[in-house]
Amino acid sequence: MTVTTLTINGELVSASPGASVLEAARENGVEIPTLCELEGISSAGACRLCLVEISGTPRLQPACVTAATEGMEVQTDSERLNRYRRMILELLFAERNHICPVCVANGHCELQSRAIENGMDHVRFSYQHPDLSVDITHERFGIDQDRCILCTRCVRVCDELEGAHTWDVAGRGTKSRVITDLNQPWGESDTCTSCAKCVEACPTGAIFRKGSSVGEMEHRRDRIRFIADARKKKEWSP
């Protein structure tokens, strides 16, 4: 197997064969901000935070779904990219009701972390303040639509790793919502196996373990990576 060599931010680096630009960057210790991407499940290319500049390509490309190719020149950090990333984060904070100080995921939230890293200290857009619901009908978990950023990690992890496909997205545009089954209370879902993969996958405080108080909702991403790896490498086969 031959490695791919490419340039990231002016440094010549090598990446494992078949790696995406994001993976290539991570292998070489370069951080690219992400939100919808999660190791272990397919990439959606939806949050647009991981957009990078690639020489010779007029459009910005999402690092998570762009293959690293030989000789590619990638820029992951520029004034323009950071400006765009900041605006994307501002749009997310303005879209729903993200009240960090009273959120179960305060301090363990990827949206909050990305904002701090980016230096996003205030939101210039007008807050939409939609009137959204909280569903705590499930015996162990809850979903607070106020905190959802529609990254669809829950949809993908439930479909791809658990195979239950309890979650999906309903509606469209700004009216999109993640739902369980026929948009019925989660507790009445026929398909949910209560496996908690969606809870561990959620980047914010949208899906949470009941009983978590402010700042108590920590996510165990390693569990998802562990299952995905084991599956891929058939570690559990006899």
Partner: peptide, 20 residues
């Protein structure tokens, strides 16, 4: 739900399409 069962699709998928 009737359609979901007949086409062997997850209910959330059917609901997602119907509301899109």
């Amino acid at each position: 739900l009737f359609v979901a069962h007949a086409l062997k699709l997850p209910p959330s998928r059917v609901y997602g399409v119907a509301t899109f």
